[in-house]
Design a protein around this nucleic acid. Sequence first.
DNA 1: TCAAATCTAACAAGTGTTTGATAGATAAGC
DNA 2: GCTTATCTATCAAACACTTGTTAGATTTGA
Lengths: 220, 220
Amino acid sequence: MTQDGPTMSEGAVHRGRAASSGQPKSDTRAAGSGEASVVERRDEILEIAATLFAERGYRATSIRDIAERAGMKAGSLYYHITSKEALFVEIHDKALDAAAARVRAVIAGCRSPWERLEAACVEMLEIQLNPESLTLPIMNNFRSVPDEVKDALIRKRDEFERIFRDIIAALPLPSAIDRTIYRILLLRLLNTADEWYREGRLTRPEIAAQIVGIFRHEAG
Amino acid sequence: MTQDGPTMSEGAVHRGRAASSGQPKSDTRAAGSGEASVVERRDEILEIAATLFAERGYRATSIRDIAERAGMKAGSLYYHITSKEALFVEIHDKALDAAAARVRAVIAGCRSPWERLEAACVEMLEIQLNPESLTLPIMNNFRSVPDEVKDALIRKRDEFERIFRDIIAALPLPSAIDRTIYRILLLRLLNTADEWYREGRLTRPEIAAQIVGIFRHEAG
DNA sequence: TCAAATCTAACAAGTGTTTGATAGATAAGC
DNA sequence: GCTTATCTATCAAACACTTGTTAGATTTGA
């Protein structure tokens, strides 16, 4: 892609209920009335799209694919979304926020720096390898994303990675090790786990322990 | 992609001079006659395609992109190639062969196991980060490749990675470290270097040294 | 003259997106 | 309570465009 994607012009003025707009009137409509509420429907679409983006990548996932999985026709999707790009950006931001929250939560209960690193690694593997929710492996492969959007995505990702910068800053590493490279390498492994992970033999915590084992060096 | 790509039916019976076929008559035509020889023309196309595939990925690179860079129209490309898939497979195989040769060459002159590992890492970074030749970063991102082709690509890649299996087998690692995970992680970093590498500050050999520094653990 | 290499033009299929029509539910007026 | 009117969510159909690929005509050079 890089230069041929649609150009993401201005903000949406759709008739439908695209992205951010606060609740429509007061439509959260408690789950009493039998069927899924309006808000849930949109979240459902976000999850479906997230799963497909994660499985096949942005470019290889078509609007029609998403629509079909959501049980509707392609055109109908545009009642809920502004554009494919906007959909991706929204998912990406939500996924990173959720991931950040989860990682922050697990490291909060850790005393030593190495404990924190290992807990963060375990949690990252869970996040990347469990296609359960909206916390999905889509924080790389920026090549498949139009240029203008790319900047926003990278900014959000950098924000997320600051968590690891802090964890690593607290590690008692030998002075010969460059902490920036250290962080880049570690995050690359964690973020692309779904590409190199092979089911079987070792469990996820065991693999996380292997990673930390390799990255563990005490100053001396 | 995964299931929608073209289906790579049978072997080519083109009129042109697609893939493997030995030389056409005796057409290597020494470089005396002023212009590029026929064989060189085809290699030129392979290099152009390799560069584009590396830059944008398989799916995001169109036949028309390649043709334009080669100074011709899309249809004309099919005089030289059988299909986009076959073109990719050929490039991929050639790239891996070239990379294997280069890595084998540099580790041949090394005594100690750790020396060998560092030399291999330096060379891999050079290969991945120098878009000079046909030795290009396309040994990952298999998601963007049709299923049937994927198997062949993976087989070839596994063959390449055996070099690293041997290097790692000779390392005096602590018994707690799993050499399979160790190899997978290291190769993932080296193979995706073009995605995480940022120009400036550290040179490539310095980065390679950092990587080896992190992965270096003596048994004890 | 002959073959190699390229062009033009089309194909069928797929892309993101828009438009106008329409069921089904909800609310308002009488 | 019954009939309107409004609104929500969907569909069908088209749009303009890109994709890989093929066929036949045409140029180029020896």
